[in-house]
């Protein structure tokens, strides 16, 4: 009896496997929650398409799609010109959703949300601002009484898109940070301690008094963490929200290059949250298997029509309308 069912199940699976289109992707961990939801919903609507995604990190995603071992990649930081030149497969960046990075801190007796200017954050990580009582922190937060304690800067020790977005922003607002540290998924931090993952940084900041760190907005929201506002390019302190992130993307959309490789940190606009970024899928321009390319293009169309609407419910910021329209045109090129 049981065996019969098992045999029938195996048979069904086998026939499914034979006819279904299996598409394999790998890459960034940051958008993994929404990607896996999209892929599973899409499979329910289209039982003949199976999209498998492994969140192995942006670096791995770029490497694998460049080598042609997966059908698509995903990354939090756009590929460099060198990486594009050396890749065996030519790929196209397709922005999917946006994320943001927020500053978190642990200060005894300070309950209100704090304000930070970009150059202050940069100098905290450069070790130039070493105490909470520094007048430059006080200047952004009138009326807050800061303790005279040393700041413990906490950073991500693992290579991550979060660090890339954060250092990209700090490099834009502080020439000193750009020269001494620079922007990358892992950098040489002049001071502080490194913890692995958002959960490591958040755990350390929660525990250690007088610490300062940065985590993804989605993580801070999901764990009800208190986080600070950051001063944007037009001089306004903005607290991160999906609206603020989409506003930053909309502001940047006017100057969006055709290959979508754009950094939207420190974007113009009064409502823009400055530490925001796109996350991208890497789609091969010329697939070895036209059927797969067609299925992928169809999925991307569905993502724009239906998927984007679900983004904010998972605290990802959806693409602004002008960018969606651009992407729709680009998808037509996927063959």
């Amino acid at each position: 009896m049981n065996l019969k069912f098992l045999a029938a199940g195996v048979l069904v699976l086998a026939t499914l496997g034979a006819t279904a289109q299996n598409i394999n992707g790998a890459g960034a961990t940051f958008p993994y929650p929404i990607y896996s939801r999209w892929f599973s919903e899409y499979s329910k609507l289209h039982p003949d398409v199976h999209i498998n995604y492994q969140s192995i990190g942006s670096g791995g995603g770029i490497r694998q799609v460049s080598e042609g071992t997966v059908d698509f990649g995903a990354t939090d930081s756009p590929m460099t010109d060198d990486a594009i030149k050396n890749a065996k497969t030519t790929t196209m960046h397709i922005p999917t959703v946006l994320g943001a990075v927020v500053p978190v801190y642990n200060l005894k007796g300070v309950t209100q949300d704090l304000n930070f200017s970009g150059d202050v954050i940069a100098d905290i990580y450069l070790g130039k601002i070493s105490k909470w009582s520094d007048p430059r922190i006080a200047k952004d937060n009138p009326g807050v009484k800061f303790p005279d304690n040393a700041i413990l800067p906490v950073y991500r020790s693992d290579g991550s898109g979060t660090s890339f977005i954060f250092t990209d922003y700090l490099s834009k607002v502080s020439a000193d940070f750009r020269n001494k540290v620079g922007a990358a998924a892992s950098v040489k931090w002049p001071t502080g301690i490194g913890q692995k993952g958002n959960e490591g940084v958040a755990g350390m900041v929660r525990q250690a008094p007088n610490s300062f760190g940065y985590v993804e907005l989605i993580y801070a929201r999901g764990n009800n963490m208190q986080f600070g506002s950051v001063k944007n390019a037009s001089g306004k302190f903005v607290k991160a929200s999906t609206d603020g992130v989409t506003a930053a993307a909309a502001a940047a959309a006017k100057t969006m290059p055709a290959d979508y490789r754009v950094s939207i940190t420190n974007a113009p606009g009064a409502e823009s949250y400055p530490i925001s970024s796109f996350t991208w899928l890497l789609i091969p321009l010329k697939s070895t298997d036209p059927a797969k390319a067609k299925a992928l293009a169809e999925f991307l169309g569905w993502m724009l029509d239906k998927g984007e609407a679900e983004a904010s419910s998972m605290t990802y910021a959806p693409l602004p309308k002008p960018v969606q329209d651009m992407v729709r045109k680009s998808i037509a090129q996927v063959k």
């Binding site: 192995i56 990190g57 942006s58 670096g59 791995g60 770029i62 490497r63 590929m79 460099t80 060198d82 990486a83 050396n86 020790s157 693992d158 290579g159 991550s160 898109g161 998924a185 892992s186 490194g194 692995k196």
Partner: peptide, 14 residues
């Protein structure tokens, strides 16, 4: 061992 575990997954440059 820690630096390999931390940085390997996101290392893109050759």
């Amino acid at each position: 061992a820690s630096v390999i575990a931390n940085e390997f997954s996101e290392a893109t440059d050759n």
